[in-house]
């Protein structure tokens, strides 16, 4: 059976390679499955739901969003790399730093960072250091002074371990020369009540939280290159003298070996969808990205460098 599918695949590939013009004119001709490796209701899911109708409009076929949560995404990615066919009809959502961190830290994450072809990174949620509105910390400096006086007392919540939030907190501690205690939660959702209820001093979270809870939280700084459109009054870490830029990038990937024209077509479709939903997403605190092709690969490289040292440090300490 396996042999059969493999040889058919080879045949298809051969045809595709020899006469790309003809066969590519036909992609896509059946529904596309768009797998989200997380639970419904999260940022990845919401974005996919927004993209879905736009993608369908552009591609002219149905795009079915399904979920395969587990292991912080690893379950979906390992299965995708193992079984998905490189024909462009299987697309999986992927995130930085997850796909960089997990294979480094876990004994066997079941997949490789470079084991799939990223079609596009379509948006970025920068990390943001957030405190409660009635907190004593008015500026980033207040926070740093406090942490200098009382090492480890400053508890900073965030989503997950080895996540963008976690790694950013560590980079921040290094850059500012302070000691904080990072408290991981299972996702961004539970961090919010913990911060509101005063169970944490601050939270390293993503900018959409800053935007959505404007009247409850104060954002001290964001880890973006430049100020986030939805938060014009919030300084960046860079402005304040700490060179940290990072957060979660979301994108989509296809299996390695997917023909280039198909990848291009998908990239075009996602670019078009991204432009359509940009307004809604910007208002929610996202930063739009249009990294396709080599840019997409380069981004993985940059972020691997940025977080790699931190991860290696943690690994050594263990």
């Amino acid at each position: 059976m396996k042999l059969l599918t493999k040889s058919t695949l080879l045949a298809v590939l051969a045809v595709v390679l020899v006469i790309p013009g003809i066969s590519m004119a036909e992609f896509p001709e059946k529904p596309i499955t768009y797998t989200i490796p997380f639970n419904p209701g999260g940022e990845s899911d919401i974005t996919a739901r927004l993209q879905e109708p736009e993608l369908e409009k552009y591609l002219g076929v149905a795009v079915n969003v399904t979920h395969k949560p587990g292991g912080g995404g690893a379950v979906a990615w390992s299965e995708f790399q193992r079984t998905a066919k490189p024909d462009g009809y299987s697309v999986v959502g992927c995130n930085i730093p997850h796909i960089i961190g997990q294979p480094m830290i876990r004994k066997d994450a079941g997949y490789e960072t470079d084991g799939m072809k990223v079609v596009m990174w379509f948006h970025f949620t920068p990390n943001a250091l957030v405190v409660s509105k009635d907190s004593e910390f008015k500026t980033l400096d207040d926070f740093i002074q406090f942490a200098k006086k009382k090492p480890y007392v400053g508890t900073v919540g965030g989503s997950g371990t080895y996540s963008a939030n976690h790694l950013e907190t560590i980079r921040f501690m290094k850059a500012a020369g302070i000691e904080l205690t990072y408290v991981p939660y299972t996702g961004t959702g539970p961090v919010i009540p913990a911060l509101m209820g005063g169970h944490l001093k601050g939270a390293m979270t993503y900018t959409p939280v800053s935007v959505n809870y404007k009247d409850k939280f104060r954002t001290l700084a964001v880890a973006a290159e430049e100020r986030v459109p939805a938060l014009p009054d919030v300084p960046t870490f860079k402005e304040l003298g700490y060179d940290i830029v990072g957060g979660a990038f979301r994108g989509v990937a296809v299996p390695l070996g997917t023909p280039q024209p198909v990848v291009d077509k998908l990239a075009e479709a996602y670019t078009a969808a991204n432009k359509q939903i940009a307004k809604k997403q910007l208002d929610l605190g996202f930063v739009m990205k249009y990294a396709t092709g080599d840019d997409a690969v380069a981004l993985i490289g940059t972020m691997r460098k940025a977080y790699g040292d931190v991860l290696a440090d943690i690994k050594k300490k263990k």
Binding site: P69, G71, G72, A74, S78, T161, S163, P184, T186
Partner: peptide, 19 residues
């Protein structure tokens, strides 16, 4: 995967049990 700590436990060598 540990909810806090991020490492995997009791996967008995099977990546799929990370979930």
């Amino acid at each position: 995967v540990a909810p806090i700590g991020g490492e995997t436990r009791f996967t008995f060598g099977m990546p799929v049990l990370q979930g």
